[in-house]
Amino acid sequence: MANALVNVPARARRGEIIEIKTLISHPMETGYRRTQLGARVPRDIIRLFVCTYNGTEVFRAELHPAIAANPFFVFSTVATESGSLAFQWTGDNGFSATETAPITVE
């Protein structure tokens, strides 16, 4: 349903700091907008983003309505071992999306 894009280098040297980019399609409705008839548009945002590296959490972001639509994050982690990076977004109205990316560390 949700369209998530992650950019993780496919291979890295052990101990290297790698840059990770993530983007997910989501309207991030703030809950402060009104329709032309004056009715408040209910809030619908992603509240939490977590990145885990072989099961260990390396980065987490707690989001509020002031994050722009289609949340985009660039962050980094240390390449410690081969395996996979898992990304999870959770939010209002039961929103949940996951994505994984493999990495080879040599």
């Binding site: 390396v58 972001a61 240390v78």
Partner: peptide, 8 residues
């Protein structure tokens, strides 16, 4: 944003 030493 929350980090640990693993963030680099």
């Amino acid at each position: 944003f929350r980090f640990g030493p693993r963030a680099g």
